[in-house]
Nucleic acid binder design. Structure first.
Length: 298
DNA sequence: GGCCAGGACTCAA
DNA sequence: TTGAGTCATGGC
């Protein structure tokens, strides 16, 4: 099978994206290697393993196992790496901020890495609520290895996130055995049931304005303002989303702009007003600033 | 051993 | 709208 080629946009750095995907965390849903990333997908209900690397001005996607559906794979990778975005307006805004302008060169070409599947994005954000990321990734791995499907390629297991029906069929006790708290277990199961009963879907949210989508999400138990914004940013790429309440965001603003540890709403709003329509990218780059790589932080 | 981590919920003022 | 109390569980 011929590899699928995707032309890379300008202001794109595959290495920056790969590095963020890795970030010293143990993510069970992709594997970053020297110059490539491997990921298992479900394409037309068939487990499909792809490997992405850069080849000249193209991303080269090789289908190692499974379904060679070029259009769907192309679409997934485009969404995952946010390839269709022109970042120049964002970089122009960053360049005007004395404290953040270093990002235009230090993080040049970093894309907002998405979670195209809304269910997965919501589950991941609920898992990540209030606990440190190391533990959050551990929980995600346990959940995925216990209830997700896998495929083996050259002695390595690759997983996809558990399906809606699987999570919807679980009991709170089963998740507590994986060290989920009682509340989180309940939240995850309830959200899975919303999906399985057709009360929530990505398509449904896509037809709504961002404010309406947040309202809809927040009406579900376990989804607060932070989770709603996170999911809309990562899954629907709504760039005006801001993860209010986010400890990581606050830490970054504290160290780069001397914001207090718990900034006031109006001060956040006024800061983000400067980055209108690029709020989510700003949040993402601020998260990036928290991760240390070769002392790249000024 | 105590504080903290990419929060949510409830209740009170 | 904002604040305090509560819930949970592992990392450091």
């Amino acid at each position: 099978m011929n590899p699928i080629l995707l032309p890379v946009p300008s202001q794109f750095s595959f290495q920056e994206c790969l590095w963020f995907l890795d970030r010293n965390y143990d993510d069970c849903l992709h594997e970053v290697r020297e110059n490539s990333v491997l990921k298992l997908l479900s394409i037309n209900e068939i487990l499909t393993l792809i490997e992405i690397k850069q080849f000249d001005k193209y991303l080269q996607i090789e289908v190692l196992l499974g379904e060679y559906d070029e259009e769907k794979i192309r679409q997934f990778v485009t969404e995952w790496f946010d390839l269709e975005r022109d970042l120049s307006p964002f970089y122009n805004l960053l360049a005007q901020d004395q404290d953040l302008k270093y990002m235009t060169s230090s993080y040049y070409g970093l894309r907002l890495l998405g979670i195209p599947d809304l269910f997965e994005a919501l589950c991941w954000s609920i898992i990540g609520q209030q606990i440190n990321l190391h533990f959050a990734y551990k929980l995600k791995r346990r959940l995925t290895e216990t209830y997700g499907e896998k495929i083996c390629h050259q002695q390595v297991d690759f997983y996809i996130f558990p399906k809606v029906e699987m999570i919807a069929s679980l009991t709170v006790e089963e998740l507590k055995n994986l060290q989920f708290s009682t509340r989180k277990a309940g939240y995850l199961i309830e959200i899975a049931r919303h999906f399985s009963e057709g009360l929530l879907s990505k398509k449904m949210l896509e037809s709504l304005s961002t404010d309406e989508a947040i309202k809809k999400l927040v009406s579900i138990r376990g989804i607060g303002e932070w989770t709603a914004n996170y999911a809309l940013m990562k899954s629907l790429k709504r760039l005006e989303c801001i993860t209010y309440g986010d400890v990581g965001l606050y830490n970054a603003l504290n160290s780069l702009k001397n914001f207090p540890k718990k900034p006031l709403r109006k001060d956040l709003e006024s800061f983000f007003h400067t980055f209108k329509n690029w709020e989510a990218y700003t949040v993402f780059y601020l998260w990036r600033s928290l991760a240390v790589k070769n002392n790249a932080i000024p």
